[in-house]
């Protein structure tokens, strides 16, 4: 019940999650992120109805969000300091963490969607692509929360724009590769449940680029 109240405050950016400086409510946000991410992961990994894959995906969704955030955090901190924005760093961090938790909350809220789809089709490619939609919506919601936190910061100092966009760029860069490295999330019915694929350490951007070249007829291999 307490978590739900915190989620309500998070979505409204009120009380402990209000916009501005102050302590970042890390334990609360981490709890929300992990529990909400786990819930969506369970639903996402249920395509084959295998408990093992559901648990793997349940663990990997919050892990994905945490890894992407933590890897980018040192550069975000240094960039803020170098740009002379250190005084507002706690406010920026509150926005960044709140955005991550919001993304997880949106995923949890949309977790019935893949269940509905899985109940209607056995097409693996469709299931795979469909899961992009909740992530897209979650990312948009995270952007709204982040923009809400950043609005007063940018009004105070225009350089916050640069810090914000650098964060977004680095986060997308790392999150996409993390998602690629941590797959499978849905679980190919022709393969055994796995935590990581055997070719986990290939490069997501390169693979996507090759696919696009193939689609465009530029690579005929």
């Amino acid at each position: 019940m307490r978590v739900l109240l915190e989620v309500d405050d998070l979505l409204r950016s009120s009380r402990a999650h209000a916009i501005g400086r102050g302590l970042v409510p890390v334990p609360v946000l981490a709890t929300v992120l992990c529990s909400a991410g786990f819930l969506y992961g369970l639903a996402m990994g249920s395509f084959n109805g295998q408990i093992q894959q559901m648990l793997y995906s349940g663990l990997k969704v919050p892990l994905l969000l945490l890894v992407a955030t933590l890897v980018c955090l040192p550069s975000f901190f240094v960039l803020n300091s170098v740009l002379g924005l250190r005084d507002d760093f706690s406010a920026a961090l509150r926005g960044v963490f709140a955005a991550q938790a919001t993304l997880a909350v949106v995923l949890a809220a949309t977790s019935p969607w893949p269940l509905l789809l899985y109940g209607s089709t056995t097409d693996y490619r469709l299931a795979l692509n469909f899961n992009g939609l909740p992530f897209l919506l979650g990312a948009l919601a995270a952007q709204i929360v982040l923009a809400r936190h950043y609005r007063p910061l940018i009004a105070r100092n225009r350089r916050q724009h640069l810090a914000l966009w650098t964060w977004i760029f680095l986060y997308i860069l790392v999150a996409m590769q993390s998602a690629w490295a941590m797959r499978p999330f849905v679980g190919d019915p022709s393969l055994e449940p796995q935590f990581f694929r055997d070719d986990a350490w290939s490069n997501g951007f390169v693979e996507i680029g090759r696919d696009l070249l193939r689609l465009g007829g530029l690579d005929r291999r």
Partner: peptide, 26 residues
């Protein structure tokens, strides 16, 4: 010095990609 500080701060991202990718050109 600032240049090196920013560079060192993106070090964890470089390490992350080094650990989870096999593409040298990337």
């Amino acid at each position: 010095g600032t240049n090196l500080a920013v560079l060192a701060s993106v070090g964890p991202i470089t390490a992350f990609f080094t650990l989870c990718t096999d593409s040298y050109p990337f």
